[in-house]
Nucleic acid binder design. Sequence first.
RNA 1: CGGGGUAUAGUGUAACGGCUAGCAUUCGUGCUUUGGGAGCAUGCGAUCUGGGUUCGAAUCCCAGUACCCCGACCA
Length: 417
Amino acid sequence: MRQSQLFTKTRKEAPKDEVSKNAQLLIRAGYVYKEMAGVYVYLPLGLRVLNKVIAIIRDEMNGIGGQEIVLSALQQKETWEPTNQWSDKEVDVWFKTELKNGTELGLAVTHEAALTKMMKDFISSYRHLPSYAYQFQTKFRNETRAKSGIMRCREFIMKDLYSFSKDQAEHDMFYEKAKQAYVRIFKRIGLGDQTYVTFASGGMFSKFSHEFQTVTDAGEDVIYVSEKKGIAINKEVLTPELLIELGIDKEDLIEKKAVEVGNIFNLATRFSSALDLTYVNESGEKVPVVMGSYGIGPGRVMGAVVECLSDEKGIVWPESIAPFQVHLISLGKEGSVATKKAEELYKTFTDTGVEVLFDDRDVRPGEKFADSDLIGIPMRLVISDKTCAEGKVEVKYRKTGEVLFIEDSKILSVIKK
RNA sequence: CGGGGUAUAGUGUAACGGCUAGCAUUCGUGCUUUGGGAGCAUGCGAUCUGGGUUCGAAUCCCAGUACCCCGACCA
């Protein structure tokens, strides 16, 4: 993509009412636009990152047998009444609306009830289980206080997978597989080092759930990390008994602030019982399906990456989710050798499938460099009269600052696809 | 939902109750310039909304709205 065609532009200063680092940088660099508190628009650059995060999650969900669907954002009152969750007392983050005829509707806070209800049409025998469905869908939550930029929103995309198993043993096996898939997701996204599988409150159906907590001061949760074990415990469930059970010394725990980027938990038969999702087992008995829920917020993940990996100059994207692989910067004047070469290189990249943002704007070098640092694409290539004279291209890595001069003919070989 | 704060061009800011609401940046135009947000000239662009006090309100008071922060909440 040509930067001259990109309708967004960078800013030197962030809006004064954005305090969080993620929102400041994402707005300054032109990734997101704030529509209102807790509601952000994803701009061309931001959508590319979001889609890459989504692609990684999708790949891992498909890898454990997930089947992608899209449920509706508008939900019926009847869907939530069996579990008593239509009540504003039970679920206090509802956005509700109604049809012209007065029928009450809700904007989806989450989807377990809707999917459970739907699955009644498809699950009736043990032969139909286990089954796993997931989606990327917009959730609406009427938070009393949106905060932390794109990390706590009133409208946000969430990946939610729901598992349908014959019994607890089958559920437990999948639960473990899903946990490992989550570990891989955060590793691939570039947050592996600072993200911990965290023991958290399991609600009323199991002792614990597992949260994936990314350590950052921008987070709202307090966790206790055991570096030795590579796991963490949410403050809300930390007890001496648990430490014994996990074989952790209290001295090994370090208190840290963290943001919950994923959560997986056992739903047991809460929804299947309430909504009558049952199947007939081999003995001919009708029994409720055992369910699990597995969530990740791609937008929140994106915010966490910015919080964790940016520096004083701007964002530093991991290669796996950067909006582009390469930031090609031409410093040549119109009609110069450098400009011609940059154009040729741009064509080579686009022809060979290299994702490239081409800064072909007629602005001064300093501005291009500053923008490049702010936008945070992992590899920067500079073409100037100087580099052309040597038959080379300057390569600079955003993360390390390392600079290389590569011969023209070898450029494609240093770019990872 | 409780508490606190803020509201002036696209953005960041200044202005004792009193002069044509100033500065920077952005944006437009022209010239110049081209390896870390250059320079000169010139132009466009603002007091959140509604009441009140006052001879006079960006400034004081009340209400509303929006946003931010702390806490609660996050099924």
